[in-house]
Write a protein that binds this DNA or RNA. Sequence first.
DNA 1: TTGAAAGCGCTAACAT
DNA 2: ATGTTAGCGCTTTCAA
Lengths: 343, 343
Amino acid sequence: MATESRDKPRRIRNISELAKLAGVSAGTVSRALAGKDLVNRETRERIQALAREHGFRPNQMASRLRTGQTGVIGVVIPLGHDKRQHISDPFFMTLLGYLADALTERGYDLMLSRVIPEHNDEWLERLVDSGMLEGVLMIGQSDQFAVIEQVAAHYRPLVAWGVHQPGQVHCAVGTDNFTGGKLAAQHLLAQGRKRLAFFGDIRGIEIEERLKGARAAVAEAGTGANIELFATPLATDNMAERIAADLEAMDPAITGIFTASDVIAMATLRQLHERGQQVPRDIALVGFDDLPLATQTVPQLSSIHQQIGRGAEEMVSRLLRRIAGEETDSLVMEPRLIVRESA
Amino acid sequence: MATESRDKPRRIRNISELAKLAGVSAGTVSRALAGKDLVNRETRERIQALAREHGFRPNQMASRLRTGQTGVIGVVIPLGHDKRQHISDPFFMTLLGYLADALTERGYDLMLSRVIPEHNDEWLERLVDSGMLEGVLMIGQSDQFAVIEQVAAHYRPLVAWGVHQPGQVHCAVGTDNFTGGKLAAQHLLAQGRKRLAFFGDIRGIEIEERLKGARAAVAEAGTGANIELFATPLATDNMAERIAADLEAMDPAITGIFTASDVIAMATLRQLHERGQQVPRDIALVGFDDLPLATQTVPQLSSIHQQIGRGAEEMVSRLLRRIAGEETDSLVMEPRLIVRESA
DNA sequence: TTGAAAGCGCTAACAT
DNA sequence: ATGTTAGCGCTTTCAA
């Protein structure tokens, strides 16, 4: 039942038009609309009412140019390897959701870029000095570690999700993937499963770390234990076929599979079922991420838990401190093995 | 092995600094950097080289203010009902991915907003005349149909994913949810399953349409047939518990379930397994969306297919036409029943 | 082919 | 408490 007074439907285009209408100066309107108390409460409210009435709101582009504060954070999903489906990977999407929340809460806008670097290393440079962004968050590092390092050397407000390597200059928040991989493999090995397989594309640096951790566990387990690598892509397009082929080619002596993600684990579960192999009786399975879907499969997935929500908060708070000129350290969060039914 | 010449590491802050360095005027630099052919090829290349050398790129904020072209499209995920997990819903995430692709391809940036309208209907108004956006895409309508309608009445460059209702003013691209629901229910009814259940939160207008379609199929099936509604939320937090409770409370005569999404179907599959009920023998299940995950479950999900990729393309092309001042009609795409193992 | 100058819409000293 | 003024950094007529 809101009555709209449309006496003068002439659209107010800018602050000075409104100023003229209100019989004051542009400056006053600016102050009034910003809610400053330097302006008489009465006039302030009058101007605000007028603005509301005409559906006027100050142009953000101009305001942001003038103040030098864009209020925009770039969120980048690099797709170095794995051209396609990365963005639909539920892990990254969940992280994106939490980042969106954290940024919105703090009054920042979020500019999303989904970049496929291909043969050009300039994409990040171009992004950071577009003048549009106050800072950049990277959702994963893909195979772009070197590019990120180079930009981070002179561009401070940048925080990435992913691995932290000794001596790296850019600020990273992530899980200890090595330990995660180790936990997963140890869990399988402890069940007397000595011959393992790893399903994952190690061109992603985080994935590679997971494999390294698994390898370390295997090495500790002594002779007879080993782990074989299958380069399962993260993309969901032909993942099923790839996994089917891998299972077919796989040494029948292998009784434990560690997958680089829950999504891969779920697809593997499906293919094992197709082949009539029981999980965990015939083959045990450990995933990574511990997404909600891990509890929805039959059998439920054992997995390595990553703290996504906390990670997002830590990324944003670090970024804001960096925007304010502080330095911040990287954060490596501890993974946890969640034992369910699949292993 | 790229050698970087860092003779003058003094950072160039704007176009006139570069102009001074090049011994030309700001205007010339602007033209040169924009690649216009009004400027001598030699000087143009010299200026471009100089810019590259100093890692200078024109401030987008200023450029966009000046030209009035922001090059930014707002992509909004409204979370009217279902405060939390919507953004992690794989359907919407996939749509977002395709939208990101389509916009990037056309040189647009994407500003993501995840809005929880709560008690305020102004969120869309505020967004559209922030002066930052050339257009707005909405990923789903949630329960904000009225708000969208009102804004669309005076703001042209807006396209939403979702239902199209007779006489609606805003441009929508979506699936014929009614027919989709009808197909799903018909498929179950054709198997002699007369007592059905619908799992979904009909506060989402798209979801409600699906139920209506199912009801229509039930009505056509004649006496004895009926369908019961269970308001399963889309959020994944406590979905499992809700579904477990619903299954417990459900009339044992019900032998077919139509779920509002594949995600709900997957969770339902899990809970049915928990209860020792076989799918499809004891209870048949039809999902909605036909996401990749529908092929990964055991048994594989029968589902209603939505054309996400095409939908994204259609949304973007319509939006661009609207930005150019054209009118565009809505698009209602036909759903398809995909029969797999669960029904 | 280039330079000078105006101005996109807003904010913040500075002045009153 | 309000008006005036000078830009933020860029693009684009208009003149030369």
